[in-house]
């Protein structure tokens, strides 16, 4: 089942440490930075660990800018677009997985093609559309594009999960008087909960990470998302690294917890979405 390039325990341990260091060091370093004072930060040679840890930067991160509002904006937009994505993708995936469709192959290729679509190119028309609809600086301006960003991949993930659910179960439910749509939501969706969940996490992370559209369509402080808020944050005269680090930690933690708890699902979602696509 597995293939090991490396033999010998010491070599493996070294390799393992490299992997862990590569994955965690940047985040860890930002945590250290966030605990240092501005003056400790300006010492050479630099201190690796904070000598006199302080939480003042976290207080400043929340008081110098409406970080909590940015956090809320990010969460709200990500949650809404995830919900919308799941709804739309579930319906589409059911049709593709269960119904006899003449153009199934064509529809699937269109969805795969869209999943590699460079959304950046649509900045101008989206800016124009949102502007004429009065949606610049609004939650909807981001929720809709983010949904489109995630629907293709989520549909593919869900199709593969729906394929794995025996059709008999549905038929049985329908014999019991369930409609087909009823069977979808009462039988298929619950049974493929891991798949729905996986798709949901992908959609959430997509929305949480997006920067260009958020920066371009929602730059008003009231509607900034976390990445935009933190990037545009500038102190009076200098780039306040400790405060920015604290804000970054605040921004990293929610998603880190999410993927820590659900890591297996995330991995399976990434790979089904990726490999099947």
């Amino acid at each position: 089942m597995r293939f090991d390039l490396l033999s010998g325990k010491p070599l493996r341990i070294i390799a393992g440490v490299i992997l862990l260091f590569n994955g965690f060091f940047p985040a860890l370093w930002i945590v250290f930075t966030s605990l240092k004072t501005e003056s400790e930060l300006r010492v050479t040679p630099i201190h690796y660990l904070p000598t006199d840890p302080t939480l003042a930067n976290y207080v400043r991160a929340f008081t110098n800018q409406p970080l909590l509002l940015y956090l809320f904006n990010s969460l709200f937009i990500a949650v809404c677009s995830t919900a919308l994505t799941l709804f739309v993708a579930t319906l589409a995936a059911y049709a593709l997985a269960r119904l006899r469709l003449r153009f199934r192959g064509l529809i699937l290729s269109v969805i795969i093609a869209v999943s590699t679509f460079p959304l950046v190119t649509l900045l101008v028309p989206l800016f124009q559309m949102m502007r004429s609809l009065g949606l610049l600086n609004s939650y909807l301006a981001l929720i809709l594009p983010y949904t489109v960003l995630s629907v293709p991949v989520c549909t593919l993930v869900l199709v593969s999960f729906f394929d794995g659910i025996p059709r008999d179960l549905e038929s049985a439910a329908m014999v019991d008087g369930c409609t087909r749509i009823g069977a979808l939501f009462k039988i298929v969706v619950p049974l493929s909960a891991p798949g729905v969940f996986t798709a949901g996490i992908l959609a959430f992370v997509n929305a949480w990470d997006e920067f260009l559209l958020a920066l371009s369509l929602n730059s008003s402080p009231t509607f900034r998302t976390l990445p935009v808020g933190i990037t545009l944050y500038q102190g009076e005269f200098t780039f306040p690294w400790p405060t920015i680090s604290a804000a970054l930690v605040v921004g990293i933690v929610p998603v880190a917890i999410l993927i820590m708890i659900f890591q297996e699902r995330v991995v399976s979602g990434l790979t089904t979405g990726g490999i099947k696509g």
């Binding site: 393992g16 992997l19 862990l20 590569n22 994955g23 965690f24 940047p26 985040a27 370093w29 930002i30 930075t33 992370v205 949480w208 990470d209 920067f211 976390l226 990445p227 935009v228 933190i230 990037t231 690294w241 920015i244 680090s245 970054l248 921004g251 990293i252 998603v255 880190a256 999410l258 993927i259 820590m260 890591q263 297996e264 995330v266 991995v267 990434l270």
Partner: peptide, 23 residues
């Protein structure tokens, strides 16, 4: 080890840029 691969993946690119700008 799986988490060590997932953290960089889930980190927003903009955060990543800021962190490495500091590096």
């Amino acid at each position: 080890f799986r988490l060590a691969l997932l953290v960089p993946w889930a980190l927003p690119l903009a955060f990543c840029g800021l962190i490495f700008a500091w590096f």
